[in-house]
């Protein structure tokens, strides 16, 4: 279980790294945190899969037009943390995948 307090950008980055790697059948270590996810093959469709996973995981409501594909792992993590800070209600507990 995660709460707004202990969800750090680092944690989101690692979470994202594994989801993206799973989705693309890549080794997580191959993902450079400064490269836009689109370069790894994340398009508008897979981007919404990512956003859905993150929302379930930490309870954050990402903007409906959030296109994570145009962001890097680091930038996407910042986006999530910013969204959490804007809506500091206690996140719903969720199961780990």
């Amino acid at each position: 279980m995660s709460t707004a307090q202990d969800i750090t950008p680092e944690l989101v980055t690692e979470r994202l790294r594994h989801v993206v790697a799973d989705l693309l059948e890549m080794n997580p270590a191959e993902l450079d945190p400064d490269v836009p996810l689109s370069a790894y093959g994340i398009d508008s469709m897979t981007s919404s899969v990512l956003a859905g996973d993150l929302e379930k995981w930490c309870g954050v409501q990402l903007p409906p037009d959030a296109s994570l594909g145009r962001l890097t792992l680091t930038e996407a993590a910042d986006e999530v943390v910013t969204a959490l800070a804007r809506a500091p209600r206690p996140p719903q507990p969720t199961k780990e995948r």
């Binding site: 450079d32 400064d34 490269v35 836009p36 689109s38 370069a39 790894y40 093959g41 398009d43 594909g69 145009r70 890097t72």
Partner: peptide, 10 residues
Amino acid sequence: IAVAKVLPAA
């Protein structure tokens, strides 16, 4: 990285 930022592709 710079190219990937302007072109959403590999």
